[in-house]
Design a binder for these strands. Structure first.
Lengths: 335, 335
DNA sequence: TATGGTTGCGCAATCGTTTGCATAAACAAT
DNA sequence: ATTGTTTATGCAAACGATTGCGCAACCATA
């Protein structure tokens, strides 16, 4: 059971490496290799358990059929679900995936991106954590790059993302219509677009509500349970406590919920809760959580298909694709 | 900004490719390259933005520093968390990760494993879904393989896994001590060891309980919310309904909880619930869920470290490492 | 018997590294 | 002046695949 290569097959069939290569890569007809020869080669390949060396192939062809995917935290259900969709779609198109976890660190992300380049991936899908698009833009001159979930509005990098402004508007207006008057928004990582857009939507709704909103406030700095817990806890201890909380992520919501429970405040009567993003378990909470659900499937598949286009047809899109996809309000009973 | 290779650097410095290679791969001293030359090469590499071609390097050295990781469902929080640990630990050791999602399909898994071999990964970590160890054992003759979470007890494949028998025993005994007498165990995928071992633990506890247990039953066939919901629903509608449910996974528990709620039965008074495996949100449920927590960190890190050993020191372990790690009972208020 | 077209395949370069084996220059020792 | 040693570097093969070009053999046509 020695290692099998094109050469070993060539030897045992009495043919040349070229011919074997052409047969095994399906180009037999194209090169007018005879039926008999094709058969002979295929049989021998099977018998000898030949496995093509994709590393060698990659070196020669300059295509690896590998896509680099970098996300801020693969343990986070949101990114796990998104990755699941992306990986599945890529597989259907014949790509494999190098996965890197930037752990919300720009320097780790940079390492991962450079690794992708060094490994000659055919394309990159990134949920960027860096504050600057510079590295990604630079890389995108060489290899196709598509962003998902997070993005840089003014950079030349295509992206697929939830319309966070619209979603935030929707959530806030829903709270106001329900009669809540003092709303606390607990925001996440201040530097990323989704967070900024959610702030914009929230403010816009609060400011143009014809007096429905008596007071509003924005606090917080991370998409974490801890942040939700801390900010909410402080607010609940203050003189004029909010009567509704808009959590900018599902983790934030869980933290907020924890604080609310500890203060013995009842949901949704004494305080309303709404979340941006679902987490798969909100329906099992008591009360089930009303939320804005993100179009994960559209984001993931959109990014994959665009990337594939860019790889196949060259980067020749007239304009950079920048897609904001509408999220949906899913009403439950937390407000 | 042309593509830079060792050759381009060799030309612009007036040195040979060999020398440049040796300097840039840190073997300068070893080959007694002069300080001056080393500096010159490094400067030029920086100036020209040289990036090593890891594909070419891989072909030449037969090492890729890539590990293949295949899991049944990366969207599942359990596998996402495990993957997060594994990927993080691998990165510290200088490995990158090709991730494949077998979607609980043995044929998809086989495709992924063969892809790993073809791509010349240095090692493989698998959470296998196949019922037979044949393919994995065969592959492990060529490239180091370590299993995590799921395993084949009699195969020559090393694994790191929760002691599911002990955990199941613990959970069941806890229910019995709490006074529950009619226990329904909702099991998952019948063909995998963790499930079988949990069954064994459950039966063992029920049978040797000195009459504490009046009735017990086992049903189910998937680690899914749906399965938990269906099995529980049916049981609750039966004449002698169970007074406690032992869910063999967190997803199953959620399904069971849903059914329990729909039947208007109160937890933990009318029915007790316990789960094998945590999901990160059990503490936010009402009541919070008592569960057996799996030692994810030990499993992930253990697998990574063993694999690294096998790669570095050759497969020369005297005996195949087979580690069952003790889980922990985390008491909350669902039973 | 040239001429031309078709059929079926092989030669050899190439992708970018790494590395065993020289080797040239400089110096030291005899 | 010869020999030996050390220093600093280069030559060229190798990894395993792909592919442009060439060519021999065969057949048909004129």
């Amino acid at each position: 059971m020695k290692k099998q290569t094109l050469l070993t097959i060539a030897n045992s069939t009495g043919l040349s490496v070229s011919t074997v290569s052409r047969v095994l890569s399906g180009k037999g007809e194209k090169y007018r290799i005879s039926k008999a020869t094709i058969e002979k080669v295929k049989i021998e390949a099977l018998k000898s358990h030949y496995v093509p060396d994709l590393v060698a192939k990659g070196l020669r062809t300059k295509r690896t059929d590998i896509i680099g995917l970098v996300v801020p935290d693969i343990g986070n259900p949101f990114f796990a679900s998104l990755s699941s969709i992306i990986i599945g779609d890529l597989k259907k198109l014949g790509y494999n995936v190098l996965l890197a976890d930037s752990m919300e660190s720009a320097s780790e992300e940079a390492i991962a991106l450079n690794m992708f380049v060094s490994r000659k991936v055919d394309g990159i899908i990134a949920v960027p954590v860096s504050k600057s698009p510079d590295l990604l833009e630079n890389i995108s001159k060489t290899v196709p790059v598509v962003l998902a979930d997070r993005y840089f509005p003014d950079a030349g990098l295509p992206y697929f993302c939830t319309d966070n402004y619209a979603g935030s508007l929707m959530a806030t207006n829903y709270l106001l219509e329900k009669g809540y008057k003092r709303i606390l928004a607990v925001r996440g990582l201040n530097s990323v677009m989704p967070d900024k857009e959610r702030v914009r939507g929230f403010l816009s709704a609060c400011k143009s509500c014809n007096g429905k909103c008596v007071d509003y406030e924005i606090e917080g700095n991370m998409f974490s349970v801890r942040n939700g817990y801390d900010v909410t806890g402080k607010a609940l201890s203050s003189a004029e406590r909010p009567d509704a909380i808009f959590a900018f992520s599902s983790n934030i919501l869980l933290g907020a919920l924890m604080a609310v429970k500890e203060h013995g405040i009842s949901v949704p009567d004494e305080i309303g809760l709404i979340s941006f993003d679902n987490n798969g378990f909100f329906d099992y909470l008591n009360p089930a959580v009303t939320r804005i659900e993100q179009p994960l499937k559209e984001i993931g598949s959109g990014a994959v298909n665009l990337l594939n286009d860019m790889i196949r047809n060259g980067n020749k899109a007239r304009d950079t694709v920048k897609k904001l996809i509408q999220p949906a309000l899913v009403v439950r009973s937390s407000c």
